[in-house]
Design a protein around this nucleic acid. Structure first.
Length: 503
RNA sequence: GGGGUGUUAGUUAAGCUGGUUAUAACGCCGGCCUGUCACGCCGGAGGCCACGGGUUCGAGUCCCGUACACCCCGCCA
């Protein structure tokens, strides 16, 4: 009776002053609280709007199996023992990816599903082991067609659930720019504090006179120097900058070199000040547009570490300086509070340092840009592809691609990844065979419904938009799952545990 | 696998540099109050200070380990 009303009958105190652990243990009581009631009502409406919008756009809602064959790559799967095939296992689907492509082969031109997915990876604030996606796939489309559908859907959600009109089309940014300016592929565009690239500046000044930077006198792939400028207005104390260093170290940094800019551009309070050449210092100040009183934070070394450290420092500073709230959206009724962004044109392949070969950055079935196919053999890192992520306020809320439907190009991609024909057939045979029967050009996307609800409602945690969420260790404190099973059940499945609890 | 924060009464928390009987609020129990509604007043019960070691004359407080919760890195669409 109350599930269509804005004000539920049990208006339990809004204030949360109970430990999360306790709340989860008595989740059914926690769910009586008005904020959670309203959140779940909004989520219900999001489901309804999604179905209505996609139905109007001629999408068919089709189901796919949860119990599937394990395929390598991507997320770790949950395994389910197959009683009728002793010794064998199903995997719980990490996404309907292959099946939705097969719908395209089968001639269903527009498919969607609001579907549970399962991934056996560690949890985060915005990650649960089972979660819900709005999954869709379309035939005879390019990237722009997928964007148009998603923008229609997302703006409908914000309009009909929040009453906010988000302008279309959403802005786009190339992956390369996102990494360069923000250090990750999900930039929060609500504030500045962009990273400043210094690798070439340092190389041009032959290491800038700084002993720690001698290895940067020449540019080495995968090794970079960057800085982040904290404006003078922040007026950080020594204790506060020390805190920044602690955070950086927590992200894997060796340290956090700093420099405070003096009246004439000189550097103080800095381990670099003694040795840096005046020319290099001026060039860095210019690159960072540093003014007296500003504080420069430096990171150098392995590109991925530099990016992780600076991307997280940027977020910390954004919150610390009050540029964005701790969580949620400062003014949810204003369209400007919602910074949607398409991140496009990422590389198809990335180099795996451990396995010493190129691997798919996402999956091997993404269509490369036609003009970069030529680099597949000669310069694999240069191959860009039709892969796209939808980002909102620093959270990735969806990702998809235009699929590779041409078997000839597919072969080249496998070759670039060092996957033999036999191996490919063994691992992905049914999809490759299906594509050989003739597949239309197709592509799609999956939107994280939990994250959409999390952001739309301004929730503090993904757990607040999931009725019965799991803890960081993947347990359910209410039902005490996962639990022990009867030995007889294991015998039926021909399973024995080798686990020995610590003494 | 790694880093960080936390764990004190039923609940939420305070307990600084180790020092007799570990505090408060709400809740609970008893008494009083016939117009209250976050009632008020008086009295009371309730704690292996998460668990296990260690340092010390002495540990809620310091050290080590474990468990649980949360945040992050790794991992992950």
């Amino acid at each position: 009776i109350f599930n269509r009303s804005e004000t539920p009958p049990f208006l339990i105190e809004d204030k949360i002053d109970t430990a999360e652990e306790k709340r989860l243990h008595y989740r059914y009581l926690d769910l009586r609280r008005a904020p959670l009631q309203q959140t779940l009502m909004k989520r219900s409406r999001m489901n309804a709007v999604t179905r209505r919008t996609l139905e109007a756009l001629k999408f068919l809602e089709l189901e796919t199996p949860f119990l599937v064959k394990y395929t390598p790559g991507g997320a770790r799967n949950f395994l389910v023992p197959a009683r009728l095939s002793p010794g064998k296992f199903y995997a719980l689907a990490e996404s309907p990816q292959l099946f939705k492509q097969l719908f395209m082969v089968a001639g269903f031109e527009r498919y969607f599903q609001i579907v549970k997915c399962f991934r056996d990876e560690d949890l985060r604030l915005d990650r649960q082991p089972e979660f819900t996606q709005i999954d869709l796939e379309m035939s005879f489309v390019g990237q722009d067609d997928v964007f148009a559908v998603v923008e229609e859907l997302v703006t409908a959600l914000w309009r009909e659930v929040l009453g906010v009109h988000i302008p279309k089309p959403f802005p786009r940014m190339r992956y390369e720019q996102s990494m360069r300016e923000y250090g990750n592929d999900k930039p929060d565009l609500r504030f500045g504090l962009k990273h400043v690239e210094l690798t070439t500046v340092v190389a041009e000044h032959n290491g800038a006179g700084v002993p720690m930077w001698q290895s940067f006198a020449t540019v080495t792939p995968g090794q970079i120097v960057k800085t982040l400028k904290v404006p003078a207005s922040a007026n950080f104390s020594r204790t506060e900058t020390d805190k920044l260093e602690e955070i950086a170290k927590g992200m894997g940094a060796r340290g956090l070199a700093r420099a405070k800019i003096g009246e004439n551009g000189e550097w103080t309070q800095s381990p670099l000040a003694k040795t840096i050449t005046a020319e290099a210092r001026a060039a860095i100040n210019a690159a960072a547009e540093a003014k007296p009183g500003d504080l420069l934070l430096f990171q150098f070394g392995k590109e991925s570490t530099v990016h992780t450290v600076l991307a997280n420092l940027r977020l910390y500073l954004g919150k610390r300086l009050g540029l964005i709230p701790e969580y949620g959206t400062s003014d949810p009724k204003q369209a400007e509070s919602w910074r949607f962004l398409w991140v496009v044109d990422p590389p198809l392949l990335e180099y795996d340092d451990e396995r010493k070969r190129w691997v798919a950055a996402h999956h091997a079935f993404t269509r490369p840009h036609d003009e970069s196919i030529q680099y597949l053999e000669t310069d694999p890192g240069r191959v860009l592809c039709y892969r796209y992520d939808l980002v909102l306020n620093g959270f990735e809320i969806g990702g998809g691609s235009i699929r590779l439907h041409d078997p000839a190009v597919q072969e080249k991609v496998f070759a670039a990844m060092g996957i033999s024909k036999e191996e490919a057939e063994q691992k992905f045979g049914f999809l490759l065979q299906a594509l050989r029967f003739g597949a239309p050009p197709h592509g799609g996307i999956a939107l994280g419904m939990d994250r959409l609800a999390f952001l739309l409602t301004g929730a503090e945690s993904l757990r607040d938009v999931i009725p019965f969420p799991k803890t960081q260790k993947g347990t359910d404190l209410m039902t005490d799952a996962p639990g022990d099973v009867d030995p007889q059940q294991l015998r039926e499945l021909h399973i024995a545990s080798t686990y020995k609890p610590p003494a």
